[in-house]
C-alpha cells in the first residue's frame, strides 16, 4: 500500500503541493484536524504565514498530536513557513509563535525584506545533477544549523535547504517552479 501523504491545509500554499504530489502518483490528504493527521504516514507543511498557521495549529487542536507524530519520526517536508514552524528557534517572529523544535536550526523570518525583494534563482542541491529553480517569497533564512543538521543547498552562502533525521526543510518553494525532484526525493525517502 502506498503511504498516505498529508498536506497541512490550515492556510497557505497547500494546493500547489497537493498538485505535485498527485502528479507523482502519491495518495494525498488535506490535514486540518487531529483525526485527519492520525490517518497520514507523512506530512508536508506548506508556505504561508507562519504566525497564522501557528495560531491555527493551536486552535485546531493539532499542536500536541503533531508534535508527538514528529518526535516519533514521521517524515516531514516543510517549505518556507513550514520550515519556520519546524525550527528550534525563530528570530523576528511573534513572541507567541510556536516553534516545534524538530530541526536544530535558527531561522530568521522575512530575512530578505518585503515582497519587492522576493526573487527566483537557480541553486545547486546536493545529490541533484542539475541546478534547481528556486522561488523565494518573503523568505526566511537559516542563520544557524546545529551539528545534526545537513545543509543540502545554499544561496549566496546562506543555507536554504536542510535535512535532519526524517525532516527536510526549505526556505524556498519547490512547489511553485514546476520542478518535482525534491518532492520525488521526499517520497522516495519515506
Amino acid at each position: 500500500m502506498k503511504p498516505r501523504i498529508g498536506v497541512l491545509a490550515l492556510q497557505g500554499g497547500f494546493a500547489a503541493h497537493g498538485a505535485i504530489l498527485d502528479r507523482l502518483g502519491a495518495r494525498t490528504v488535506e490535514v486540518r484536524t487531529p483525526r485527519q493527521l492520525a490517518e497520514v504516514d507523512a506530512l508536508v507543511m506548506p508556505g504561508g504565514e507562519s504566525t497564522a498557521m501557528s495560531m491555527l495549529l493551536e486552535r485546531s487542536g493539532l499542536l500536541a498530536p503533531l508534535s508527538e507524530r514528529l518526535n516519533d519520526g514521521m517524515g516531514v517536508l516543510g517549505t518556507c513557513a513550514g520550515m519556520i514552524l519546524l525550527a528550534r528557534e525563530v528570530v523576528d517572529g511573534r513572541a507567541d509563535q510556536h516553534a516545534l523544535g524538530l530541526v536544530d536550526i535558527t531561522v530568521r523570518r522575512n530575512a530578505y525584506g518585503t515582497q519587492i525583494e522576493s526573487f527566483e534563482a537557480d541553486i545547486d542541491v546536493d545529490g541533484l545533477e542539475s541546478s534547481f529553480h528556486a522561488v523565494f517569497i518573503r523568505a526566511p533564512v537559516v542563520e544557524r544549523a546545529g551539528p545534526g543538521v545537513e545543509v543540502l543547498a545554499r544561496h549566496e552562502s546562506r543555507a536554504v535547504l536542510c535535512r535532519s533525521g526524517r525532516a527536510t526543510v526549505a526556505a524556498f518553494h519547490p512547489e511553485l517552479s514546476g520542478d518535482e525532484r525534491l518532492h520525488a526525493r521526499f517520497l522516495a525517502d519515506l
Binding site: Q11, F14, A16, E49, S118, F119, V135, R138, H173, L176
Partner: peptide, 21 residues
Amino acid sequence: NRPATGTTLVKRGLAEMLKGG
C-alpha cells in the same frame, strides 16, 4: 544565476501563500 525580482512567478507566488487566509 542572477536573482530575478518582480517576476510573474514571484508575484503570483505571494498570492498562493495567502490562500486559505
